[in-house]
């Protein structure tokens, strides 16, 4: 019983990381209709920089903030390259983000090497209903919940959030009412970068990071985000948590080798069901 509770909370913590990666994908897709395959890289960059800053003696909080800021900056840079030229199609931009993700490997290996890194998070052990687990998992959940609440409120209830959403809802109409669509897209990439960075700095204390950790993150993040059609943050959250829990249970009771397959199967199932329901996915859903 306490095993199960331990797995559940661990799974929720890991799933929260996936959900944050997913939220970044959603923030970018909702505004630009670009699937950003460099999303996992923001988490890796942020985690690597945080490890360096902590090693250099910066206090917790400041170092993590530095990591998130680097994620945001990386997001902005990817945005400039991917959508900066007027008239770039979302498909072309997607390929550009893939390319930039690979380029990021080179930069990361050059600066940080190819060995796994980690840094301490919240230390200590928490006891929940008889299960003992690292307290850091609870911190991950405590940060993720308000971030999602804030994001849902921001997109649905603020004028800036509506203007961001308007860009993909009807790009021409957005221009008609005077919204600077390109600037909004860059803002979305910056927000996405920060969210990815947050995922990285939050999960690294319980899961060490290497330059290619982004693959796990993007596969799981995409699987979570695609549940909500890549546009709905709250469903992406549910999807991420579900994935995290399922994988932890599979690893705990079965074998650790099949974690990624869980995400892939879930993602394929969702996409097949959605395709069967709505027919071929239109290029610009209007």
């Amino acid at each position: 019983m306490s095993d199960l509770i331990g797995y559940l909370i661990t799974g929720l913590g890991i799933g929260a990381g996936f959900a944050l990666v997913a939220s970044g994908l959603v923030a970018i897709y909702r505004v630009t209709r670009v699937v950003n395959f460099a999303q996992g890289g923001f988490a890796v960059l942020a985690a690597l920089l945080t490890s360096t800053l902590l090693a250099a003696g910066l206090p917790h909080g400041v170092a993590e903030l530095g990591g998130v800021a680097l994620g945001a900056l990386a997001g902005l840079i990817v945005g400039v390259v991917a959508i900066g030229r007027p008239g770039t199609s979302p498909g072309t931009s997607l390929i550009v983000t893939l390319g930039l993700g690979v380029l990021a490997y080179a930069v990361e290996v050059l600066i940080w090497g190819d060995q796994p890194r980690s840094f301490p998070g919240l230390t200590g052990v928490a006891e929940v209903a008889g299960a003992r687990l690292p307290a850091h998992y609870l911190l991950i959940l405590a940060v993720t919940a308000p971030v999602f609440a804030l994001m849902a409120w921001f997109f649905a209830r603020t004028d800036l959030g509506r203007a961001l959403t308007a860009c993909a809802s009807n790009r021409y109409a957005a221009q008609v009412v005077g919204i600077d669509v390109r600037r909004m897209g860059l803002l979305a990439f910056t927000i996405g970068g920060a969210l990815g960075g947050l995922a990285g700095v939050l999960t690294t204390p319980v899961q060490q990071v290497t330059f290619d950790s982004d693959v796990t993150l993007i596969v799981n993040g995409f699987a979570a985000a695609v549940l909500g059609g890549l546009t709905r943050p709250m469903i992406a959250l549910a999807g991420g948590l579900l994935l995290g829990v399922t994988q932890t249970l599979v690893a705990g009771y079965g074998g650790g080798a099949y974690q990624m397959e869980v995400a892939l199967v879930l993602m394929l199932t969702v996409m097949i069901v959605q395709a069967a329901r709505t027919g071929p996915v239109p290029e610009t859903a209007r």
């Binding site: 509506r162 959403t165 308007a166 809802s169 009807n170 021409y172 109409a173 957005a174 008609v176 209007r286």
Partner: peptide, 12 residues
């Protein structure tokens, strides 16, 4: 400007 074809934000 009231654009040709109305150009709504359909989901809003």
């Amino acid at each position: 400007h009231v654009p040709e074809g109305r150009e709504m934000f359909p989901d809003m």
